[in-house]
Amino acid sequence: MSITKDHIGGLVFLCLSVAYGYYAGQIPLLPGDEYEPFNAQSLPSALAIIGGVLSIALLVTADRSVEGRLKLAGYDFWLVAKLLLLVSLFAMALPWMGFTLSTILFLVGGYWLLGVRSIKTLLVASVPFAVVLWFLLSQLLDIYLAPGRFFTLMLGV
């Protein structure tokens, strides 16, 4: 018997349902709430049970054919990981470098990761975009975009 996508999915959701059910039991209740017909634990407990039953049903009825196996060949996971890391770094850079500089760095990084190597393209496709966007948001739409903490600390502005 081969381990298929259905088996993996069923097992993952079974673990999730068990963990969810455990934490559902930890939800603090107000005094007397335990005697109420419906309290903060009711729906989560029911969902944990339904999730568990459905996961088992998926495991029992799982596709056992070779075609049902999880195929990871042909996917560029490394590039996706780098792109998601870039998104995460953008989030970290925002409070420190400010909106405009973070945007430029994010876009340049994204273009570079996807294969753009021309310095001119990297700059033309990022700097005017970030500046125009900053102008639109802060000057036209009056949205406050805080300057980066780095600049306020270093330059005192």
């Binding site: 969810y20 559902a24 939800i27 603090p28 107000l30 903060a40």
Partner: peptide, 27 residues
């Protein structure tokens, strides 16, 4: 079954945060 499981998963995510009736926090 997969779609039903995903529905349950969505319902589970919806329970994260403050419970509107009792005010207690969940997950």
């Amino acid at each position: 079954i997969k779609a039903l499981l995903m529905t349950v998963f969505g319902l589970m995510i919806a329970t994260v945060g403050t419970d509107i009736t009792s005010g207690t926090t969940r997950f």
